[in-house]
Design a protein around this nucleic acid. Structure first.
Lengths: 160, 160
DNA sequence: GAAGGAATTTAGCTTAGCCTAACAATATGT
DNA sequence: ACATATTGTTAGGCTAAGCTAAATTCCTTC
C-alpha cells in the first residue's frame, strides 16, 4: 500500500476528476478545487510524484500514473458510495454531506462501506421503503409512506 | 464555541471517561488511553487549561470544568450514537468500528447524526427488522429473517 | 520577438501534534 | 525515613500541511 495521508488522497481524487474532464490537470485548478494556495499544490505534487502516483514535471500539466488512477478510483468509489447513502438512504441534501463524505472516505472501514452500499442498493430497488425518509416525520425506515403506523406490518403482526 | 481540534476533543472525551470512573484522571492514564506518550499529554492539558476546559496544575490530577464536561458529554453522545448505529443497525462488531467512530464524532453533521439515532431507535423497537442484518446473506434491510425474498412484502405487492 | 500578465515554483515561515531524552516531583516498600 | 521506582514536566526536535513573498517560466498579444 501507498499509505497516503487523507490530504494526499484528496489531491489524487481532485486530479483524477479534473483529468477526466480536461485530459490533464493544472496546478491552478487543483489549488482552486482543493481550496489551497498554488504553492501548496507544488509540494503535494512532488510528494505524489515521489510515490509514482502522478506524472509531474515543473511547469507541465499533471496526469495520474496507472497506480495513481487505481487509487483515485478507489477513493472516488468510496466517496460516491457515501454520498449515495447520505442522499438516497438518509435523504440529506448533497451539499450538507459532501464535505463530510470527503473526510470519511479516507478512513471508513470496508465493512461499513459495504453495508452502506447494500443499503443504498436496497433503497434503490425498493422505492416504497426508500420513500419513507422523504415523507415520514420521524423517518422510520419501515413506516409505509403516507400511513400512520410506526412499525412495519411484519413487526405489528409479531406483536399481536 | 471552543473550536477544538479533533485531537483535543478526544482528550476531553478520554478525561471525562476516566474521571467518571475514578473521580479524576492522571496524565499516565490519559496517555495510555490516547495511545500517546505522557509528554504529549502535558501539552494538550496546558492547551485545554488555557481554554478553561480542564482544571490543571502540574503534578496534580486532572478534572474537567463545567464547560469541559458539557463538551465532553456532547462528544460522547455522538460517539455512542455512532457506535449504536454501527453495531445495532449495521451489525458490525464494536472493535471494528470503535476507531472509526472516534474519527467521525468530531465532524459528523447534525443531520446525519440525527438520522443515525432515529435508525438505531427504530431497529431497537422493531426487532424483526433489526434481526435481518444478523441473518441475511446480503443484509437487505427489509428481507424478513429466514425468508428467501429480497424485497419486503409491501414492495413485492407494488410490483404486481 | 519583446513586453506584460498569468501561472508556477522556490524559499522560508508557522502551527499542531507528536516524539525522545533529561530532569523533577511524588509514591512506595522496607 | 529514605532509597528506589513511577510518574510528570521541560526542552528541543521532527513532520505534515499549510501560508506569504519573491523569483521564474510560460503564454499572449502587439
Amino acid at each position: 500500500m501507498s499509505n497516503l495521508s487523507a490530504s494526499l488522497e484528496d489531491y489524487l481524487e481532485t486530479i483524477y476528476e479534473i483529468a477526466e474532464r480536461k485530459g490533464a490537470a493544472r496546478p491552478k485548478d487543483i489549488a482552486d478545487k482543493h481550496r489551497v494556495k498554488p504553492a501548496s499544490v507544488t509540494g503535494a505534487l512532488k510528494h505524489l510524484a515521489e510515490k509514482k502516483l502522478v506524472n509531474y514535471a515543473p511547469y507541465d500539466v499533471v496526469t495520474l500514473t496507472g497506480t495513481g488512477k487505481k487509487i483515485a478510483r478507489e477513493i472516488l468509489r468510496k466517496h460516491n458510495a457515501l454520498l449515495g447513502f447520505f442522499t438516497n438512504v438518509l435523504d440529506i441534501p448533497r451539499e450538507d454531506v459532501e464535505e463530510f463524505a470527503c473526510e470519511m472516505e479516507h478512513t471508513i472501514p470496508d465493512r461499513v462501506l459495504e453495508r452502506f452500499v447494500e443499503f443504498a442498493e436496497f433503497v434503490d430497488k425498493c422505492p416504497h421503503r426508500g420513500a419513507i425518509w422523504r415523507e415520514g416525520a420521524h423517518g422510520y425506515f419501515c413506516k409505509p409512506a403516507g400511513s400512520e403506523q410506526t412499525l412495519c406490518k411484519d413487526c405489528q403482526l409479531e406483536k399481536q
